[in-house]
Design a protein around this nucleic acid. Structure first.
Lengths: 327, 327
DNA sequence: ATGAAAGCGCTAACAA
DNA sequence: TTGTTAGCGCTTTCAT
């Protein structure tokens, strides 16, 4: 069926290693032979077998990415990783953990068995166990979207803490407002970091409350509805855009005018901010940037270069109709 | 570093093939030996090398997916494929072509060299060349989102034609309205199929015009703005939701009230419909369903089962504020 | 039911 | 510069 390196060698009247050398540009081969080899490759439509190649060379050109789920923001991230990795000649193997450590560990086994050259791990809650396994394997790895749970591992993420502080600090008169925070799940590290950031500014503020939902649009809507039926926040700080969009709908249905009667803010997660009514004041992170940087780092690590262990990326606060800011 | 099958064999005091047989459940092995092998595997933390396995067995447990880009709808699709494939024990290798045939062909070579067991190809414009190559390789392949350009190849897609006809047919009084159609790029097969569907109903209608944009929110906005500055449509039929959202914004800025002064419809592409103001009347496709079905088909084909060459999936018309329907 | 031996397609080490 | 040889880790005959 498909031809192999020996077929090419025979047709080009050279030895196997010569074919290999031409294809991998690993050693100098005379122009004459090189031409014969390339010609034979073209004639036979030869495609090297990556499995055999990886097996004998202990190298693979595959990078694994493990994500909890393929949402909007992670899709942008992967898109960007993919572009960068392709430029460097790497393929992408994607695993979806559903956010469960058990699956994450299985996926790592899977990718280890594929001899991936490196792994980019996306999680809102990086597991120590995962990190330890990866370290033990001495596999190049980049933790994205969140800081690695142990040191000595490379992390690339956004400065959620500072973003949260800055957002709160730019809300005029925050001290005189009763503040409601609507968070995602309590085991979501990123949510917790954002809350920490909020509280840094709110520490002398004695009129705030924190509520929880599961972080989806639907549950954000439900939770907000419950809150608004019982209480009267001046401002509702939502831990992501989906929650915020749900809250906007809840406010609308409850007859509460945003921002006049209540302000609402979101936080990165989608790009819905520009479409909602009112448009959503939120924090924007550049997933493409993070993807590119993470991919660059993993490539660099694979090649054995030194890389900064931590890189933390900035944010942009987008002022829109749902909450006026003083910036 | 990592242990191999010979280590396991030694520790379990059995031969290599026995380990292989236990791990692959390929032949009967006595309980006694099986227990020893599994124990050794656990002790050594043994993970089989997939490359070696594929090399010697001519099988791989990897399925390739090639997509033009990772947008919202395709992410849902991949998410769903991924879940289904994982259940059947397959890994996923994802390539992004950027919509270019050249890249698509390169990615196929890449995946061929990885010995993928099958390929799911997503495109809004499937190339004959790609199809021919895949056929020649005798690789199981499923074309998704669009009909394969040649027969004898499996396709799984939505009935865009009928969806378009039904949408138009449900608009009250369409015959007496001047209809503007705002399409995506002219080489997007899916757009063209939708237009065909529209025109089936509009064939005796002599008051419609077709415009084009590049299919993005931004360009939809620009194109709609141009149209609305010069003309006065009764209804603006947008070929996808992004265009429609752009058009809604253009209408808003131009001071045209939707739906009172002009109606707007979208078409699958995002799930923004529920957030816009006004909410968007549109056609919904179930990307999860398509993902599951495509993945099921490829698994089935890999196993050598017969599969229906064509499966065409339905749609749901969602009536919302931007255009009242008679359904 | 189990083991010994051969070989998958390629690259790396060595030799010429 | 090129070729010969061995071996990557596994599965698959074929014996036993």
């Amino acid at each position: 069926m498909s031809s192999k390196i020996s077929d090419v060698a025979r047709l080009a009247r050279v030895s196997l290693p010569t074919v290999s050398r031409v294809l991998n540009k690993s050693k100098y081969v005379s122009e004459e032979l090189k031409k014969r080899v390339l010609n034979a490759v073209a004639v036979l439509n030869y495609v090297p077998d990556d499995n055999a190649r990886s097996l004998s060379s202990y190298k693979s050109n595959t990078v694994g990415i493990i994500v909890p789920v393929l949402n909007n923001s992670i899709s942008r991230f992967i898109n960007s990783c993919s572009t960068t990795l392709e430029e460097s000649g790497y393929d992408l193997m994607i695993g979806k953990s559903g956010g469960e450590i058990k699956n994450e560990l299985e996926l790592i086994d899977l990718q280890l068995s594929m001899q991936v050259s490196g792994v980019i791990l996306v999680s809102s809650h990086h597991s120590t166990k995962t990190a330890e396994i990866l370290i033990k394997e001495k596999l190049p790895v980049v933790f994205a979207y969140n800081k690695a749970p142990v040191s000595g591992v490379h992390s690339r993420y956004f400065d959620n803490n500072k973003a949260a502080s800055t957002l709160i600090a730019s809300i005029p008169d925050i001290d005189s407002k009763n503040v409601y925070i609507l968070s995602g799940l309590s085991d979501d590290t990123i949510c917790n970091i954002r809350i920490e950031g909020f509280l840094k500014i709110l520490e002398n503020h004695n009129n705030y409350k924190i509520f929880q939902c599961d972080g989806t649009l639907e549950d954000g809507y439900k939770a907000a509805k419950n809150i608004l039926n019982a209480e009267k926040p001046d401002i509702l700080i939502c831990l992501n855009d989906l929650i915020a969009i749900g809250a906007l709908r809840a406010a609308y249905e409850t007859g509460i005018k945003v921002p006049d009667e209540m302000e609402v803010t979101g936080f990165e997660g989608t790009s819905f901010f520009q479409i909602s009514t009112p448009t959503l004041t939120t924090v924007i992170f550049d997933d493409y940037l993070l993807g590119r940087e993470s991919a660059d780092s993993i490539v660099s690590l694979i090649k054995g270069n030194e890389e900064k262990e931590l890189e933390i990326f900035g944010y942009k606060i987008l002022q829109a109709e749902s909450c006026r800011l003083s910036i």
